[in-house]
Design a protein around this nucleic acid. Structure first.
Lengths: 110, 110
DNA sequence: TTCACCTGTTAGATCACTCTGACAGGTGAT
DNA sequence: ATCACCTGTCAGAGTGATCTAACAGGTGAA
């Protein structure tokens, strides 16, 4: 994945009210899926969709664990992130594309 | 507009490849709409749509000017922005909502 | 067995965003 | 008058993200 695609994935992952809310709920500590769905006020299947995006952007990580009483629980935890968002950030990401990826995708000529 | 809506608007405005590209083109200096459309490789009507979002997020500003030879030209210029993106940024935005907006929108009960 | 929890997936509706093509208007130069 | 630029808007098509309802499976406790 190119640098700008990376940046885009992060930005679009953060750019949704439910996902912001989910991150906020996770700030205090890890929570299992069903409980997280209740706290965020979202259905569980929908939460799975949002978690997929958050996980793909490496904002969140899930681990399936067996609790003491033998029940399967999937705990989601927040991964640390710190992004400085400036025009230079944007320029750097786009310029990195030209380097790292000499893909043979058709270039748009000047 | 609430603090989190503000943040969301900024994030979603940045979260699109064409808009990132547009910002990059504007980094060197202001450009008029038609020229900007060519450089970004987008049709002019489409560019208008993207500019609307960028302008709403205060990332960009447009000014209609009369050039020396009497032609109307709309120049777009980049507005400075600098956002630190951290879990605390997110928390701050969401917490600010509870303060500033004692709107009577139905609260989701615990 | 039934109840209350849990995980995980799917099909399909709905909605917002994105994008194209066509239109109407203006200027100055040939 | 025609050409080459410019600004601005619109209806509609297409697409992808979002969301709901329903399903199938598991555990432990009453």
């Amino acid at each position: 994945m190119s640098a700008s695609e990376d940046l885009l994935q992060l930005l679009t992952a953060l750019g949704h009210p439910v996902r912001l809310r989910v991150l906020a709920e996770l700030a205090e500590g890890r929570v299992h899926v069903s409980e997280l769905a209740r706290r965020a006020g979202v259905s569980r299947p929908l939460l799975y969709m949002h978690l997929e995006r958050l996980e793909a952007a490496r904002l969140v990580e899930g681990r399936l664990e067996l609790s003491d009483d033998g029940k399967a629980m999937k705990y989601i935890e927040l991964l640390p992130f710190d992004l400085r968002l400036t025009i230079d950030t944007v320029l750097a990401a786009l310029r990195a594309d030209d380097q790292e990826g000499p893909t043979d995708v058709q270039e748009t000529p000047r």
